[in-house]
Design a protein around this nucleic acid. Sequence first.
DNA 1: AATGAATGAGCGTTCATTCAT
DNA 2: TATGAATGAACGCTCATTCAT
Lengths: 201, 201, 201, 201
Amino acid sequence: MPKNTFYNINPEKRKRIINIAIKEFKDSHYENASINNIIKNAGIPKGSFYQYFENKKDLFEYIIGLVRKEKLNYVTERVRNPKEYRFFEVIHDMSNIALTFAENHPELQAISEKLVQDRDHDIYKEILSKNREIALSEYRELIELGITKGELDSNINSYLTAHMIYSYNREIVTFYIENPNFNKEEVINDYVSLLQYGIAK
Amino acid sequence: MPKNTFYNINPEKRKRIINIAIKEFKDSHYENASINNIIKNAGIPKGSFYQYFENKKDLFEYIIGLVRKEKLNYVTERVRNPKEYRFFEVIHDMSNIALTFAENHPELQAISEKLVQDRDHDIYKEILSKNREIALSEYRELIELGITKGELDSNINSYLTAHMIYSYNREIVTFYIENPNFNKEEVINDYVSLLQYGIAK
Amino acid sequence: MPKNTFYNINPEKRKRIINIAIKEFKDSHYENASINNIIKNAGIPKGSFYQYFENKKDLFEYIIGLVRKEKLNYVTERVRNPKEYRFFEVIHDMSNIALTFAENHPELQAISEKLVQDRDHDIYKEILSKNREIALSEYRELIELGITKGELDSNINSYLTAHMIYSYNREIVTFYIENPNFNKEEVINDYVSLLQYGIAK
Amino acid sequence: MPKNTFYNINPEKRKRIINIAIKEFKDSHYENASINNIIKNAGIPKGSFYQYFENKKDLFEYIIGLVRKEKLNYVTERVRNPKEYRFFEVIHDMSNIALTFAENHPELQAISEKLVQDRDHDIYKEILSKNREIALSEYRELIELGITKGELDSNINSYLTAHMIYSYNREIVTFYIENPNFNKEEVINDYVSLLQYGIAK
DNA sequence: AATGAATGAGCGTTCATTCAT
DNA sequence: TATGAATGAACGCTCATTCAT
């Protein structure tokens, strides 16, 4: 957690540091992201940096927190209480959120992607692994609820399906970023259909 | 590309260097992988290293090439002329290959995963992007062929579906590695079903 | 010398600062002792520290002064007018005091030891050298008085003897600390005998 | 241990590094002795330093080793097989060695003193503590042998006496350094006399 | 071709002290 | 007087690469 000092400084300066840091972490791996670069680009003395943050990790986790918080803003009523809504509606909303967020915050999305991707790296692991497990188990719950409610095929493997949805949710973002000419709503609908009915004739 | 000198040295030594490098790149990210470690562990002089390879990147790309080739061998030995087979048989076989490869070559799989995951990193991007595009377009061809042959639903978005298969194919490996108690054949069948018929009741 | 502000603050706070500083200087050498640690542990603002003390050295010298004063209290309460007593009685009493002090104030003793040991270090040298010279010359006076009174051998070199006593007095404390199973009174008696009659048969 | 590199460089450069390092360790505590100072003063690049030595500790231990070796030269030439000689002759010779060494190698003596003095510091502790225990137990052996041979008073406490001789041996060096006008041989004789017969009339 | 020493930029972090409020 | 933010020099050490032999 940043020290209080950081929250008390000139907001403009604070924003500058944040933006520079976001850029640094977007462009480089945690290990390679350079505090020296950050302070140089943000125009602050090295000593000041350590007045604001405990250490490099502290800054990183703060940035990650910002990303998460920003993403949270996008979450809709349906995704907040997923169990009360129909399964494919929830999936639809989650995709919509992911795509909209990626559209509006490409740098945050980049960091977010890095987090999810870099499963091997200690610092990412630390931050991610809990998240991932939570996400997977929440997906699984939803799936099993969907089966109970009769929305989903009772023969599917809920563990595997949770994984597939998890990975699919990420891939659709990549797809949308790489194919900006597609219509967002259509992409989402196609995606949900694929999940729903498969691809066989 | 390694220099000629590398191909002229004692094959045993060459193999040793390769194995040590694989281990290093498996354990650490490109940036953190240490030439110093590699030469120390492989027992070769530092000067020699630079006789064999232009630089760190050269070595990395060489190792990646090996991984690719090794994987390709797996694939080509097993999936000949995919277009002559039925779509879901091809998918089934490809999954089987991927899982078997991951089982038999965990280090190569680890590097391979790192590559695919780390889409943002310059060095990975450079190496990966071409590959990824090739894979995606091959999937797309297969899908369109499947539609033509009447195996697949003609309403599906072939671009998006290619992405889905691409991401599913990766995720199933992760799933299988993380859940070694599941039966391989069952996992694959469940996966193919999922793809085929979706998850809706 | 601490600034007046230091003497004006809440006595409890003053005592807390002193105790924390004693602990810091006991645990670390002057150079490594950290003002940051001290203020953090004492719970005072950094600015305040520099209101109380000129700088690190100022604090250190103050603490040393306290140690000296504390030790002096011990000594003056117990060894009054040494010149009026018999030489070996004085030695005996001084040893007793030194051992008792070490027993009762292990942290102050530790700092004290550090001071005496680290003869080379500038800061210690500065503080110590005067003390040491005073001690040596007082010992010498005592010795010469002892000779005059006929208690001591008139052939001994009073300079060298003063050094011997100085070093013995320190070593006996170390010995007693390192060998807590020995009986204090016996240790002192053995020491005085050694000094008195030497070790030759 | 320095790396081979260090032994292979230009002897003049090597000697320069050694001398600079000796000066640095003489003037500053281990923690405060600065590699940056050393390389700057010795005119070598930082990278080169780490070609020669593993790290700061490595350099320090090397310097300590030099001191010990140098001192050993003095000792072995003079105090061979102490147990075959008379006790006070051995003490006499040891003092002579200590004084002569201090005379001829004041900087090494300074480091040596620092080592013996700084009993609290981790790095010194590590190097010293074994030495100290060995010295103390060898003194004790000598003392007990002296008692057996009838040279020493059988009533003395051999543990305490060993400590006293240990500390005395150090103090005499200080004395001699601080009082260079005294005659060496006389100082030694006086010292031995004090030990032998004590100071009582 | 083989070797391994030379190089210096770069790393994250701590520090005692100053200074503006 | 009290505060705590600002400061930048300094720390030990690692690194990939170059170069002389």
